[in-house]
Design a protein around this nucleic acid. Structure first.
Length: 683
DNA sequence: CAGTGAGCGAGCTTCCGCTTGACTT
């Protein structure tokens, strides 16, 4: 008989551990949580002190059945789930679902033979305070989500949703859009001189011209928006007519740049978004495969910890490959600073420092790209700083002062491995009192820029900074707010709110401002800490929240009026002759017959805008409209789809082929050809 | 090179967080 069943969360982790532990052990995985609140009901009895009703979802039923079989083969069961709030909760739910009597609870901080053996020697009990903190978190999220969403169904439209995390994400995007709407560009001007040091190589002169920007008039610094228009700028140019440009002072400094810390889920998603334009969802599925194949450590983490062995092998790799002066000199440890970090795992790093991207050439191209990024970032974080020489020269001209900056790399350090955009900005060797050659003087018009819309990277960054969401939820949250059609991406992959996004956000802000506030999660986490430390009961945390919340909710329900989102039009229904009105659905506005439900006629507003004014050559009834495919590519199809499936990639023109009578299409700017593939007519 | 798209409204919808595959008719 085998001795023990060890349960962890991830099957990959189970396989790894099986290699360390002998045949006395069976290692299995729980695949995450095994019990949860029911999907179709609130599942929390607020009258009975928030008693949760836990059920085992269908998928977990199979897992539990398997685990029970394994339990029969062993003497004892050991729960080795992650050492954080959710991990402790999973252990407890396993205990309950498997009806375990006094199971052993162990935790390990790195997956090595010695760490696991050490952990096995010091089992503890399940920490019920931590479990209770998770219960409070779970119940609060359920109450918020399952109470606010129905309010939206009643107030706005069915199928909508609200939640502690998603509603904050939408709110950020809505607020940014309003800032942009309000924004008024302000004109300002800058003055730039192009100069050079007279050529005399022995004294460091050269033909190379360099720019210097105007920074002072007299002793007073010129602020960014101070020069308001061309007249003012021209006045300065006039003042500088025939001026002598003389080096007033030189400041030389050595500046250093540190490598970035190793990746967490959030920073990995941000970097892949910025460098490759990947959505977080894609980054995660590629990382999943790298993890399963043993190339990287776990990819859902907020920890910056690095195992001793990884630090040691990074040191060996760096000194061997690049030389001793590229290694930082000691193992560099990073401290996790993000709010609510739970530290159950390591940072995301390559499994082996010496497994270079080049050595993995066989794998899928996108996996290789992501692996390279992770590998470079990890190696770089144990390397020396990059060192730059920076020069700042103040140059006087009449009553004005210009400044020229130079920055040159002295030692590349970690940049040897983790490339970032850097261009040397060279200045000639300037000395105090040098008289410079004047090349030209320009005034340059600028305008202040509106704030940038969020992209996936900046949205994730902001959420994480405020402790909203977890490594496992950034990508799903971004999917949810798009699936609900609260927000979409523009061509630059930046988020903007839909009309529905504005409406839902405003309803939530007006009625439940506290919950959709970005600080709500941080406050909740504080309360949860109190529970985890045993100072507060979890039910009390729920009660303190639910009391006032239920009261507000009841009040809001009392005088809830469905927001009228319809609009009159002067159109007439082609089916029954009644008036057509504009309605608002989850997918935006559409035209509908005012006699609904007797008459179910609808038309798409989008289609009206994109109507080419060409009758469908196939069914002779519909009109040709421009639409977007699922991949976002424009095509031209019949608007009576799905009744008629006529569609073309090329834009049709309202002319027909003299040879075969098919419709002609605009192939490119100069050619019009026949849409019939077997016909070669073109003009 | 291949590749193209539905029901949105008057009902069964909805949360966050942990983890991967994907029963049958």
């Amino acid at each position: 008989m085998k001795k023990s069943l060890v349960i962890v969360e991830s099957p990959t982790k189970a396989r790894t551990i099986q290699k360390f532990l002998g045949s006395d052990f069976i290692i299995k995985s729980s695949f995450g949580h095994v019990r949860d609140l029911p999907r179709r009901e609130l599942g929390v009895d607020v009258e009975k002190n928030f008693l949760p009703k836990y059920v085992i979802p269908p998928k977990a039923k199979k897992v539990i059945a398997e685990l029970k079989k394994d339990m029969a083969k062993v003497e004892n069961t050991i729960l080795a789930t992650d050492e954080d709030r959710e991990g402790e909760s999973i252990a407890w739910h396993l205990q309950e679902a498997l009806k375990l009597k006094d199971p052993q609870r162990i935790v390990f901080h790195e997956i090595t033979e010695s760490a696991i053996n050490h952990a096995l020697k010091s089992p503890r009990k399940i920490d019920m305070n931590l479990v209770d903190a998770q219960q409070a978190r779970r119940v609060l999220d359920r109450i918020v989500g399952y109470k606010l969403s129905p309010f939206l169904w009643k107030k706005v439209a069915k199928g909508l949703s609200a939640g502690r995390v998603q509603s904050v994400a939408v709110k950020l995007i809505v607020e940014k859009e309003r800032e942009i709407e309000k924004f008024i560009a302000v004109e300002y001007w800058g003055v730039e001189a192009l100069l050079k040091k007279p050529a005399s190589p022995s004294q460091g002169g050269s033909d190379k011209e360099f720019p210097a920007s105007l920074i002072k008039k007299g002793d007073k610094a010129i602020e960014k928006l101070e020069i308001k228009n061309k007249v003012e700028a021209d006045k300065i140019l006039q003042d500088l007519n025939n001026a002598d440009y003389i080096v007033e002072s030189i400041e030389k400094k050595e500046t250093k740049r540190n490598p970035a810390p190793p990746f967490t889920t959030s920073t990995l998603q941000q970097a892949a978004s910025q460098r490759f334009g990947w959505p977080a969802k894609m980054t995660m599925s590629i990382a999943q495969r790298l993890y399963e194949e043993g190339n990287i450590t776990y990819h859902r983490t907020d920890s910056l910890n690095l195992s001793e062995t990884s630090l040691e092998s990074a040191k060996n790799f760096i000194t061997k490959e690049y030389g001793k002066n590229y290694w930082a000199g000691k193992a560099v440890k990073y401290i996790t600073k993000s709010k609510g970090a739970q530290e159950a795992h390591e940072a995301i790093r390559p499994a082996y420092a010496d497994r270079t991207p080049e050595s993995l050439k066989g794998i899928d191209a996108r996996q290789l790209k992501l692996y390279t990024l992770i590998w470079q970032r990890f190696i770089a974080c144990q390397m020396t700083q990059a060192i730059f020489d920076s020069v700042s020269a103040d140059i006087s001209a009449n009553d004005y002062t210009f400044r020229a900056n130079g920055l040159t790399m002295k030692f590349d350090g970690f940049l040897k491995v983790y490339p970032t955009k850097f261009e040397d900005k060279d200045l000639p060797d300037l000395e105090k009192n040098d008289k410079l050659d004047f090349v030209k003087l320009d005034s340059i018009q600028h305008f202040t820029e509106p704030p940038a819309r969020y992209n996936e990277a900046s949205l994730i960054k902001t959420l994480e900074k405020n402790g909203v969401g977890r490594p496992s939820t950034y990508a799903p949250t971004i999917s949810t707010i798009q699936d609900r059609n609260y927000v979409s991406k523009n061509e630059q992959k930046r988020f903007f709110p839909s009309e529905m996004g504005f409406i839902v956000n405003d309803v939530l802000v007006e009625n439940f401002s506290e919950i959709v506030d970005i600080g709500f999660t941080a406050k909740m986490e504080e309360e949860l800490d109190g529970v985890a430390e045993g100072k507060d009961k979890w039910e009390k945390v729920c009660k303190d929240f639910y009391g006032p919340f239920a009261k507000i909710l009841a009040e809001k329900y009392k005088d809830v009026v469905k927001t009228d989102l319809t609009q009159e039009t002067d159109k007439i229904c082609p089916k029954c002759g009644s008036k057509i009105i504009e309605r608002m659905g989850r997918f935006g506005r559409f035209y509908a017959c005012s006699r609904f439900p007797e008459c179910k006629h609808t038309e798409s507003i989008e289609d009206k805008k994109n109507d080419l004014g060409i009758k469908c050559p196939k069914c002779k009834e519909g009109d040709i409209v421009a639409r977007k495919s699922k991949r976002g590519k424009i095509f031209y199809g019949c608007n009576s789809f799905p009744k008629c499936d006529f569609a073309l990639w090329d834009k049709p023109v309202n002319e027909f082929c003299p040879k075969c009578d098919s419709i002609l299409v605009q192939k490119n700017k100069s050619t019009i050809k026949c849409s019939n593939k077997e016909c070669d007519y073109a003009k």
